[in-house]
Amino acid sequence: MSTVPMLALRNIEASYGPVTAIRGVSLEVPPGVIVALLGANGAGKTSILKAISGILKPTKGSIQLAGLRVDGLSPERIVNAGVAHAPEGREIFPLLTVHENLRLGAYIRADSEVAKDIDAAYSYFPELRQRARDMAGQLSGGQQQMLSIARSLLIQPKLLLLDEPSLGLSPRLTEEIVAIITRINREHGTTILLVEQNARIALRTASYAYVMEVGRIVLEGSSETLSEHQDVKEYYLGIKADSVRGEKRWKRRKSWN
């Protein structure tokens, strides 16, 4: 890639106390592209996002945003640098209304376009508009997920970090969210790093993907390549390989081990 990547991690290591969560991760996200980070529970995907947004301080390595180092900066400085993080789960403000949650999404902004952008966020998620005056804590899990994503859009990010947007959603809602993510990327040119356990969704949404296991990147490639990769198919997509020698799945070593 000749252009400066929107996001570049070099040899990032991070730990929670004595527990090492990330062991030397390097990855790049080119501008305007959706890149996915795949992996099972506990692989360290969320820790990577936390390291990027400054919640978890890396012990080693560097993080660059459009060529500028951001590791070690405070979370609010990183948000101001154009990184929005829509965390997994329900990290919303339960006792504020949906509308107030969205207004706070624009906390760092001082321009007069905020009202217009809140309206745009509502048009992405019409369900939120209907519940604008309700307490966010009363929303369903799926709606809270939408609120978290909508709120991060109000930062007007250059780079959007999405953590498990499909978590706990029905297949229909998941489809909706995927469509919206694609629209956000297309309409605003927002660069997106998408963390997912659901490989099928991740590989369909992103054009490039990294696979993580126990704190390391074990595989990377374009979504087409990875979708055809034998081990990704078997372990992440659940498509059984026709093994010539009739090997048992649990005896076979993954190609990256």
Binding site: S53, E76, E91, F93, L95, I108, S152
Partner: peptide, 24 residues
Amino acid sequence: AKLGLAMRAVSQNQLAAYYIGIPV
């Protein structure tokens, strides 16, 4: 007021406040 809302937000969910750039 924005500051008032931010104070309520920080009291309800500090982590989420960090995520949207409120200086906690």
